[in-house]
Amino acid sequence: MRKRLRVAAYAVCVRDGRVLLARSPVPGGTHEWVLPGGGMEHGEDPLDTVVRELEEETGYHVEVTGLLGIDSFRHAFGREGLRGPVDHHGVRVVYEGRVVGGELRNEVNGSTDLAAWHDLDAVAGLTRVRLVDVALGLWRERPVDGRAPAGER
């Protein structure tokens, strides 16, 4: 089985009781809400990644105000093209960010198609990826070891 490692950086931006999320299309015509951020390019620092990705996906310029933690997961995919099964290991660096400029806009020709602020109380009702809950858990709990609370891993 081939092994694949992907390192990515994301930011939790909360303002006035609302969190900034991006919407990602899913095969089949549906969508799910994701935390703004994405994969590191080779040689790129994770902090630079999150600043770049937030601007690409939301139009905002952000200042990183803290490191909330690291989320790590593994998933085996049955087949990836002609290369066979893949053991995927994702490592996600989660920062806290503050919007310092720019204008909210949607990404064009990217991995997301909509950026929006959502009331924190309404997040549980959204179709979302697991990382949204993990990151908000890190933001709320601020664990000293940077590991998501057990119920959210």
Results as ranks from 00 to 15, higher is better:
M1E: 11
R6E: 14
V7H: 02
A8S: 15
A9E: 07
Y10K: 02
D16S: 13
G17P: 08
R18A: 15
L21S: 14
A22Y: 00
R23G: 13
S24R: 14
S24A: 15
P25D: 09
V26K: 14
G37L: 07
M40L: 15
E41R: 09
E41A: 12
G43V: 01
E44P: 06
D45W: 00
D48K: 03
T49Q: 02
V51F: 01
L54H: 13
E55F: 12
E56R: 14
E56T: 07
G59T: 09
G59N: 06
G59V: 12
E63F: 01
E63Y: 00
L68T: 08
L68G: 09
G69I: 10
I70G: 02
I70C: 06
D71S: 09
H75C: 01
F77W: 06
R79M: 14
E80Q: 06
G84H: 04
P85Q: 08
V86A: 01
H88I: 00
R92K: 15
V93F: 09
V94Q: 05
Y95A: 15
G97E: 02
V100Q: 04
G102L: 11
L104R: 15
L104W: 02
R105N: 10
G110D: 04
G110F: 09
T112M: 11
D113E: 13
L114N: 03
A115I: 07
A115S: 15
W117Q: 10
L120E: 10
V129W: 04
R130Q: 10
V132H: 02
V132G: 08
V132I: 04
D133V: 03
D133P: 00
A135F: 07
A135L: 09
G137V: 11
L138Y: 05
L138C: 12
W139Y: 15
E141R: 02
R142K: 14
P143L: 13
P143W: 08
P143N: 11
D145R: 03
R147G: 07
R147T: 15
R147Y: 01
A148H: 00
P149N: 03
A150P: 03
G151P: 02
G151K: 02
E152L: 15
R153K: 07
